[in-house]
Structure formats: structure tokens, C-alpha cells
Nucleic acid binder design. Sequence first.
DNA 1: TGTTGACCTGGAGTGCACTCCAGGTTGTTG
DNA 2: CAACAACCTGGAGTGCACTCCAGGTCAACA
Lengths: 138, 138
Amino acid sequence: MATPTTNERPAEISLLTPGQMADRTGVSIDTLRYYESEGLLTGVARATNGHRRYSSNDVLWVEVLRCLRATGMSIDQLRHYCRLGDHGPTTKPERKRILLDHRSLVASQIDELRLALDLIDHKLEQYADIKAAPNGAA
Amino acid sequence: MATPTTNERPAEISLLTPGQMADRTGVSIDTLRYYESEGLLTGVARATNGHRRYSSNDVLWVEVLRCLRATGMSIDQLRHYCRLGDHGPTTKPERKRILLDHRSLVASQIDELRLALDLIDHKLEQYADIKAAPNGAA
DNA sequence: TGTTGACCTGGAGTGCACTCCAGGTTGTTG
DNA sequence: CAACAACCTGGAGTGCACTCCAGGTCAACA
């Protein structure tokens, strides 16, 4: 086994099994498969037994996916972005546009959250003279 | 018509119909009803014909609900918080605790979003020499 | 050699938060 | 008085993003 793909040299020592990948990225095995089936993650290598092997590039990309998902980009938009990537450098302007748009979306999310923080603080003033109940955990 | 509830004086001139409430708060009529059915919004007045009439207090509270929902508090947690409110001042410490906990959650969401912004900016550097595609809207 | 564990596939199921719908009432408007 | 808009109720349906499951393969270990 080992070195599952085209290359025979043991340079691929860092390929990760699905379980390792899930540990490394915090994305579950099922979700990794789901992302692959939705076209968000392509070209994942396979061991001779058919099992997936994730490269360090895959790790980086999944981290990007995680970040974009966590900031509200939908699976659909992500899929669109990935398809552009598959179609070579002519799609770069559109990809840049998507990132710029998403960037401003995240920026406004931050603004919204700051407003929410103010509102919560305002609400907390009603409890200024109250001692908070002990926290369940930690 | 007018002054629908118990009180005959026209002081209730500011009571809002469901449609007006939806316009004012940005929360749909259906969602307002849903919140009421879930116990997040209690004591909504009714006109003689059975139609809801929202007070300015309701407006304020729905704005709080919106804010807490938008920052990730679940319907379930919100319901719990509301029930505490119904049980008088002895629950104040717990209510304060909930708000404090949620506050720190929002704060860490902001931190996460800032990291995401950094990652997006980093990714955008790959497109430094590319002119972004024109934006579809505005 | 048998059983355990990690993985495979396609497809079904879940949870959340709405959102929509059918069927009905009321009050206004031309 | 007919038609329309706004609202009522209980309950069904939707969309998203997973998450779980049944049934099977393969490699390693006792």
C-alpha cells in the first residue's frame, strides 16, 4: 500500500485518511463526502482499496471551504465558485468579484454583530444590580 | 374600530396591525405568529374582530428577538429566556447569565469573522493583478 | 479463520426555522 | 350587494445542510 496515486516515490507520506482529515479540519467524514458529491472538493486521491486519501492541498482547500461556509456562503455559491476554478484563468475576474462581494458581506456581518453587542449590553444594564447565576460549564 | 382592547381612551393610537408590524420590524406576519405560538411573544392584544394589535412594547421586544436570533440564539433558548421572564424577578440572575453567555458568544463570532476576513484577504492576494468582474447589482 | 475497524456506496432521514395553504370571518369600498 | 383586502386557524410543506443507515469490501490482528 502507500503512495496510492500516479507517483511511486514516498513523497505522499502526508496523505491523510478520511478519519485523519476529519480530525485535522474539524469537518466530519460525512460532510467531506457530501462536499465532494456536491462538487466542492474535486480530485481527491484514492488508495488501491478505493479509500480516499487527502493531500495537504485538500486540507488547505477544506479550510477555505469551512471559512466561507462559516461566514454564510451557501453550498450553491461555493459550487459555482469551484466550477469557475475548473474552467481556468479566464474566470479569474469573476472569482475575484465573488470574493470581493463576500468580503463586504462578512464586513457587514461584523457591523451587525457589533450592533447586536451594543443592544445586549444595553439590555444587560437592566441587570446591573443583579449577580449573574453561576455558569453551568466552565 | 380604534381602541380595540380593554381601554376606551384613544391612547392606544399607536397599536399596529400585523401588516404594519411586519413592515416596522422586518419580521414577516407568519414569523410573528410563529414566534407567538412558540411562546416568544406573549400578551399580544386583539381587536374586537380577533385581529392582533401590537404595542410599541411588542415592537421593542421583537427587535430584541430579531437581534438575538440574528446572532445565533435558537428558538429553544429564546423560549427558555422568555419563560424566565414570565416567572418574575427571582429569575433575574439566570436571565443575566444567559445574556452574558450570549454576549461572549457574539464576541467570539466577531473574532471568527475577523479571521475569515483575513483569510479572504489573503486569498484575494492571488488575484492582485486581476481586475474584478463587474458587479451584477449596484 | 473469524472478527474487528475503517472505509465504501446510494439513498433515506433529521432538525431547524420558517413559509405556505385551505377554508373561513370581518370590514370597507365601488 | 358584490368583491376585495387583511386577517384568522390548524396543519402541511419547504429548503438547507448535513447526518445516518444498510449492506458490502478490505486489511490486519488474535
